[in-house]
Design a protein around this nucleic acid. Structure first.
Lengths: 84, 84, 84, 84
DNA sequence: TCTGGAGGATTAGCGC
DNA sequence: GCGCTAATCCTCCAGA
């Protein structure tokens, strides 16, 4: 007889997978929204690549960002590379 | 005098960036949730790697999944690779 | 006077970068060769995607590959997913 | 009877896979070498992350690199972000 | 601490 | 030509 609790492993697993899938569906929807924003920006004449750089830079703490920029500048100068 | 419309480019850009950043913050929160689900699954004895494979497989259309699996089997047999 | 050792840091750095760049150029050449092989395979009627899967599978140790396949099968059955 | 040409498909496939695998083994060896160079650089006090940035920048054509840097600066100023 | 693996982002190739 | 998918690269994080 198949009492309550039969196949519990499979049911548990299925529920876990569904939770993951729902979360990832929401993530995907947001990713699509991000894409839309960049498309809108492009339509207004902005450059998406540069915008992505800005987003990355703004995520960093200012001190970290500055330290990295400084280090890069130092290295660039040491090897004679024009960053400008 | 600085009338309406001054710095509009910068303001537009800032608004676009903020929309992107808000969306990405939400994405990150969801990514964290996904990670939590896998951690919970692991705590219950499930293997996260296999679960990720299942999520990937379930994303595909059944016919596509089967066609690919069949082709792989055919090739594996042709070169003498045991898939089991 | 600029004696021996002047700008040593910059020179060292430049040499290190050049070593990296040379290695990466060789890597790129090999990557191009790989691409050529897949193109040739495709021209002969083989499916590149399935071939990539095979390459991945053959990289694994047989026992690992089988253990993973078995676990996946077990999970797939538990949630009622047809892998075939 | 198994004449010449039997299993030709499988043999062809196997040969193609082996060509890919050999190339990828060489690629991996080079990737390891690259890693070694970065490790050596680190041991000498250089920052690997900044070095990777330099490698990326040096791959670009100077005019492209400068155009991008300029655009980034323009945008950064427009939104009041200090790049320094 | 550091090494391997997974996720995310970028980029190139392809198809529409 | 552009959007999209697939591959590569980089970053982060868990695990040893």
């Amino acid at each position: 007889m198949t009492g309550i609790g039969h196949n519990t492993g499979g049911d548990q697993l299925k529920l876990l997978l569904e939770r993951v899938e729902n979360l990832e569906a929401e993530k995907q929807a947001l990713a699509d929204d991000v894409k839309d924003v960049y498309a809108e920006a492009k339509a207004r004449g902005f450059d998406a690549k540069a915008m992505r750089q800005l987003v990355r830079l703004r995520k960093q703490k200012p001190e970290d960002r500055k330290a990295q920029a400084l280090l890069l500048q130092t290295y660039a100068e040491a090897i004679g590379l024009d960053l400008i």
